[in-house]
């Protein structure tokens, strides 16, 4: 049996005062690209944050590369999971290189000394996302699409087997959306990263992802996109009086 990268069993997430989502089950192996879809407020971001350890779990188990979540220290987990959030970096006064360099923190000593391996990784990540020319630009000078590339490159520099991304394509136009998705697919298939991201671009995700998790507040089905289409899981995603799902093309249509 192949090793699992991420194993989630019967996970319940949210706050002590309010359960956001529960009965979440899925397993990912190295090199898989997986999208989490669902309506606004269903708990997509909360799920990512819970897996990353930014929020406590209410119940269930999370295993990161066969290791129970609870047995990992924060510093250890930083070598397993890299994160790209919707919130912009707190300061935009960092240069691109400085920001990507921060990705090496889990691997450096207390003083943050960069070894040769660190600088190589930083250079590779920048090259992978064609950021060499932007290296000394400040983040506030970048466009949204460029900033997103920088943030993903930072996660890449962190050199973790798993990367979690929260809505990596919001605020981007179609071509940049596709570009980011293509790069994520490349990271998964060529670099064998396990990539889990939330998105509202369901039709693009259907075309690109290996697996998809639909958060619907009930069953939370998880499978390959075509299986989910066959089962008709997408039809019930949105109110049927507004949009319908066309199984033949794998896209949503407005109801006229």
């Amino acid at each position: 049996m192949e090793q699992t990268a991420l194993k989630i069993q019967n996970l319940g997430i949210g706050y002590t005062s309010r359960v956001v989502a529960q009965h979440i089950n899925f397993t990912l192996i190295p090199g898989e690209l997986c999208a989490i879809v669902g309506v606004n407020g269903i708990g997509k971001s909360t799920l990512l944050r819970s897996i990353a350890g930014l929020q406590p779990h209410l119940k269930g188990t999370v295993e990161i590369r066969q290791k129970p979540f609870e047995k990992q220290a924060v510093s250890e987990r930083a070598k397993e999971i890299a994160l790209v959030l919707t919130e912009p970096p707190a300061t935009r006064n960092l240069t691109v290189r400085e920001l990507i360099t921060l990705g090496r923190q889990p691997h450096t000593n207390w003083w943050g000394t960069l070894t040769k391996a660190d600088t190589t990784k930083i250079r590779e990540s920048m090259a992978l996302f064609s950021l060499e020319e932007l290296a000394s630009r400040k983040c506030f000078e970048l466009s949204d699409g460029q900033l997103q590339r920088v943030l993903i490159a930072r996660a890449m520099a962190q050199d973790t087997p798993i990367i979690l991304l929260d809505e990596p394509t919001t605020h981007l136009d179609l071509s940049h959306k596709v570009e980011i998705f293509k790069r994520l697919q490349q990271l998964a298939h060529v670099h064998h990263k396990t990539i889990l991201f939330t998105t509202h671009e369901i039709d693009l995700a259907i075309q690109l992802c290996d697996k998809m998790l639909i958060l619907d507040g009930k069953e939370n089905p998880f499978a390959a996109p075509c299986e989910l289409i066959e089962k008709g899981c997408f039809e019930s995603l949105f109110p049927s009086e507004l949009v319908t799902f066309d199984a033949a093309t794998g896209s949503f249509k407005l109801k006229k």
Binding site: G53, E76, A78, L85, P106
Partner: peptide, 8 residues
């Protein structure tokens, strides 16, 4: 959040 994800 990012700081935490970097192991701080």
């Amino acid at each position: 959040h990012y700081a935490q994800s970097l192991g701080v």
